[in-house]
Simulated scan of single mutants.
Amino acid sequence: MGGKGMKPRVKSILYATDLSDTAREALTWAVSLAEKYDATITILHVMPDLIEEMSVLMGYDLESHFGAEDLQAFGEEGRSAVVESIKNRIRSVCKDVQNEAGCSLDLENIVIRNGHPVREIIDTIQEGDFDLVVMGTHGHGLLDKILVGSVARGVVEKSPIPVLTVRLPS
């Protein structure tokens, strides 16, 4: 990679979204960079494992309290609903962005993972052959502030590749 005068190679961009307005803003950057570098974009959404997160938050094991089967069923249903809402959200963002930039996003290139957002994003980076991560800096709402804290900060600290974090313009 190194050496003087070497240009960074950007062929594959990982765009991590929490479906917030900030993530939407970050998508416009991802699309613009993909066009400039003729790169592909992989879209990643991590469904926080709410049971795990709430258990950590409350200090006891919810799973034993509720019964794992019930929670599992809930997870499967929730997952397909999320996939659909992500695709719809991305389609609508693409339409908006297309008018500005032209949107070369492959809607099949969507990865949905379950678990802790920082951990899942880092795992995805390590498993894939990405050159750059693009993401918004924070989610929305109180729950996100409590649960997610700063996902962007965690990813920046742990990512082996460059991370572009995007704030909502104030």
Results as ranks from 00 to 15, higher is better:
Gly3Arg: 06
Gly5Tyr: 07
Met6Ser: 12
Met6Lys: 14
Arg9Ala: 15
Val10Gln: 14
Lys11Cys: 08
Ser12Trp: 10
Ser12Tyr: 08
Ile13Leu: 07
Ile13Thr: 01
Ile13Asp: 04
Leu14Thr: 08
Tyr15Leu: 03
Thr17Arg: 02
Asp21Gly: 11
Thr22Tyr: 00
Arg24Pro: 02
Arg24His: 04
Arg24Lys: 07
Leu27Thr: 02
Leu27Cys: 05
Thr28Ile: 05
Trp29Gln: 05
Ala30Glu: 09
Ser32Leu: 07
Ser32Arg: 11
Ser32Pro: 10
Glu35Ser: 14
Glu35Lys: 15
Lys36Gln: 13
Asp38Met: 07
Ala39Lys: 10
Thr42Ile: 01
Thr42Phe: 04
Ile43Asp: 04
Ile43Met: 06
Leu44Thr: 01
His45Cys: 13
His45Ile: 03
Pro48Phe: 04
Asp49Gln: 02
Leu50Ala: 12
Glu52Pro: 04
Glu52Gln: 12
Glu53Tyr: 07
Glu53Arg: 10
Glu53Gly: 06
Met54Val: 13
Met54Ser: 13
Val56Gln: 09
Val56Ser: 09
Asp61Tyr: 13
Asp61Met: 11
Glu63Met: 08
Ser64Pro: 03
His65Cys: 07
Gly67Ser: 10
Gly67Val: 04
Glu69Val: 04
Leu71Trp: 00
Ala73Asp: 15
Ala73Asn: 08
Phe74Leu: 11
Gly75Arg: 14
Gly75Met: 10
Glu76Thr: 09
Glu77Leu: 06
Glu77Lys: 11
Gly78Val: 02
Arg79His: 10
Arg79Trp: 03
Ala81Ser: 12
Val82Gln: 02
Val83Ile: 11
Lys87Tyr: 06
Arg89Glu: 13
Arg89Ile: 08
Arg91Leu: 09
Ser92Arg: 14
Val93Thr: 08
Cys94Met: 04
Cys94Leu: 02
Lys95His: 08
Lys95Val: 09
Asp96Met: 11
Gln98Arg: 13
Gln98Phe: 10
Glu100Arg: 15
Glu100Trp: 13
Ala101Phe: 12
Ser104Gly: 12
Asn109His: 07
Val111Tyr: 01
Asn114Ile: 11
Asn114His: 12
Asn114Ala: 12
Gly115Val: 04
Val118Glu: 13
Arg119Ile: 14
Ile121Met: 04
Thr124Ala: 15
Thr124Cys: 13
Ile125Tyr: 03
Gln126Phe: 05
Gly128Thr: 05
Gly128Glu: 10
Asp131His: 03
Leu132Phe: 08
Val133Ser: 10
Val134Asp: 00
Val134Gly: 01
Met135Trp: 06
Met135Phe: 03
Met135Ile: 03
Gly136Ala: 06
Gly136Cys: 04
Thr137Trp: 00
His138Pro: 01
Gly139Glu: 05
Gly141Trp: 01
Gly141Thr: 09
Leu142Val: 09
Leu143His: 08
Leu143Asn: 08
Lys145Pro: 03
Leu147Ser: 10
Leu147Ala: 14
Leu147Phe: 14
Val148Leu: 15
Gly149Val: 00
Ala152Leu: 01
Gly154Pro: 01
Val155Trp: 01
Val155Leu: 01
Val155Gly: 00
Val156Ile: 14
Val156Asp: 02
Lys158Ala: 15
Lys158Gln: 10
Ser159Asp: 08
Ser159Gln: 09
Pro160His: 01
Ile161Asn: 14
Pro162Gly: 05
Pro162Val: 03
Val163Gly: 05
Val163Cys: 06
Val163Asp: 04
Leu164Gly: 01
Leu164Cys: 05
Thr165Gly: 12
Val166Ser: 00
Val166Trp: 00
Val166Cys: 01
Leu168Thr: 04
Pro169Lys: 05
